[in-house]
Amino acid sequence: MSIVDKRRGSLEIIDSKKIISRGSLYVAQARLTAMFKWVWMILAIAVANPVLYLLSIGVGVGAFIDKSAGPAGIDGVKYLTFLAPALLATAAIQGAIDESVFPTLEGFNWWKNFFGMNATAISGNQIATGVFLASLVRVVGTVVIYWFVMLAFGALESSKAWLAIPTAVMAGVAFGSITQAIAGRLKDENVFFVIFNRFVMMPLFLFSGTFYPLSSMPGYLQWIGWISPLWHSTELGRYLTYGHAMTQSMAITHTVFLFSLLVIGFFSSRRVFTKRLAK
């Protein structure tokens, strides 16, 4: 006898209140199941990325820079120590983009599986939140691994250094949630990627005080840093990992900036998803 004959029916077996309260977690579970298929790849990248960058630029290039900078160092520390928080934030942002942009494009444009999810009791808000939560998991993993590699390289000098983990995570998911909202609106993503990579990601990476202090750049370029989550996160990271000089009001400004971005990105991606699905 097959189960068809034992059918109880959705009215009996389904509790829609439960779905309304936990739906985002179900979506996150689906995302993590897919992500887990790549877990070794993701972990390998998460480890290799900091090791290679910190070795080549931090230690390699750093040797030259430290020599010419003399005992004062860069911002009072070794170049490696100066650079590491910026790379930490970059890795967080990159991981967040991977886990928010690609699932969103798949879900709406390539495989349309978001429409499949939305045909169940799952709402657009829950899909957006679930994607966000899964990317949060990835970003936390990436940042924690990065942080331990920094520790191994001796790049953490302050007792507050562990706080660089949540700030980098916040920067990552803040940026990720904004790109998630943008990706949710895209019908033709190819042009977008070209523009995004060349005119947004590259400049942000190069002009956010990543490799040298923002203040040593000409004034007319410094605005890029100010709108860049990477710079705000890097500044906080430097303050927390080695005690880079920072007034309390600046620390608050950086935090508020990142947090606002996160809130805006999170809620607008929910709205974008819901609207697109209701078309």
Binding site: I14, I19, A34, E106, W111, N113, A119, T120
Partner: peptide, 30 residues
């Protein structure tokens, strides 16, 4: 919660296996 939908265009989760697709879809219904 009480509808079963078979859309005109398949919209399966391409990253998941056959049984995972069924499992995850069932999870969406709690």
């Amino acid at each position: 919660a009480h509808l079963g939908v078979v859309p005109q265009q398949d919209n399966l989760d391409m990253q998941l296996s056959v049984s995972e697709n069924l499992y995850i879809y069932g999870r969406y219904f709690g």
